Amino acid sequence: MDLTTLNRRTTSGLLDDRIALASAPALDAHVYEELAHDRSALVRHVLAENDDVPRDVLVELVEAEPDLVDVVALRPEAPAELKEPLPVTEHSPESIDVYCADRGACPSVRVGLQEARSTYASETLGEAYRRLTSR
């Protein structure tokens, strides 16, 4: 599908088209940016769950709709700042690895966060990171 058709469907009145685009893989970043500001909460929620949405669009999405932070924050691609308030136990191993790379964490901190993830502790990812890096 060409970019003109995608743009038309992104801004069309057809909810089904916009939902389909929000879940589609490997679209132009511009299409994802448009969908991040869609008038439908359902479209924005579907977009928040799409693994192909670029990091900067995830940030835009949360800025446009703060209620989506819990959905976006669990995504491995989410920026570290969005991940920190959630419990460490809710993050996937991949999400923690990306978080550690974003923070420039040493291997022992990465291992410590992975261990914290499996302990069912009530601390947030940010709290666990600060505990492990304050030693």
Results as ranks from 00 to 15, higher is better:
33 E>C: 01
37 H>I: 02
98 V>R: 14
91 H>K: 11
30 H>Y: 13
72 V>A: 03
31 V>I: 15
50 N>E: 15
22 A>M: 06
100 C>T: 11
20 A>W: 02
81 E>S: 13
121 A>N: 05
79 P>G: 13
72 V>N: 04
104 G>V: 09
131 R>C: 04
22 A>S: 14
116 A>R: 09
8 R>I: 04
92 S>M: 09
111 V>L: 13
115 E>I: 10
51 D>I: 10
62 V>H: 05
115 E>D: 14
128 A>F: 01
96 I>E: 00
56 D>M: 10
62 V>C: 04
133 T>Y: 06
97 D>S: 11
103 R>Y: 01
42 L>G: 03
117 R>N: 03
61 L>I: 05
1 M>Q: 10
64 A>K: 08
75 R>A: 02
134 S>W: 07
26 A>Y: 08
44 R>C: 10
82 L>W: 11
79 P>W: 10
84 E>F: 12
1 M>E: 10
11 T>D: 08
125 L>K: 02
12 S>T: 07
3 L>F: 13
103 R>E: 07
84 E>I: 00
124 T>K: 09
132 L>H: 03
102 D>G: 09
81 E>I: 05
66 P>A: 07
62 V>I: 11
31 V>M: 10
4 T>I: 08
22 A>P: 01
116 A>W: 04
24 A>H: 05
103 R>N: 09
91 H>F: 09
73 A>I: 00
74 L>W: 00
68 L>P: 04
17 D>F: 11
19 I>V: 15
53 V>N: 06
13 G>M: 04
61 L>Q: 04
69 V>S: 09
104 G>Q: 09
123 E>C: 09
38 D>H: 13
11 T>M: 10
106 C>P: 06
90 E>Q: 12
35 L>I: 07
111 V>Y: 06
52 D>C: 12
93 P>C: 03
118 S>A: 14
81 E>M: 11
100 C>G: 03
38 D>P: 08
28 D>Q: 13
121 A>C: 08
41 A>W: 08
55 R>V: 11
33 E>M: 06
101 A>W: 09
69 V>F: 02
112 G>Y: 02
68 L>S: 05
101 A>T: 15
65 E>Q: 12
73 A>M: 00
39 R>W: 11
91 H>R: 09
99 Y>T: 03
125 L>H: 02
125 L>I: 05
92 S>I: 07
18 R>L: 07
17 D>I: 01
131 R>E: 15
3 L>R: 14
56 D>A: 14
111 V>D: 13
81 E>A: 15
95 S>P: 01
10 T>S: 14
12 S>Y: 06
11 T>R: 14
40 S>W: 10
17 D>C: 05
55 R>M: 12
40 S>G: 08
133 T>M: 06
15 L>Y: 00
68 L>H: 06
14 L>Y: 04
47 L>P: 03
76 P>T: 06
15 L>M: 02
44 R>S: 06
10 T>H: 00
108 S>H: 07
131 R>N: 12
64 A>E: 05
63 E>F: 01
124 T>P: 00
96 I>M: 02
100 C>Y: 04
29 A>P: 05
7 N>G: 08
42 L>F: 06
106 C>H: 11
82 L>F: 13
100 C>D: 02
39 R>S: 14
6 L>P: 02
42 L>D: 11
46 V>C: 04
29 A>N: 11
41 A>K: 15
90 E>I: 02
114 Q>P: 00
79 P>R: 15
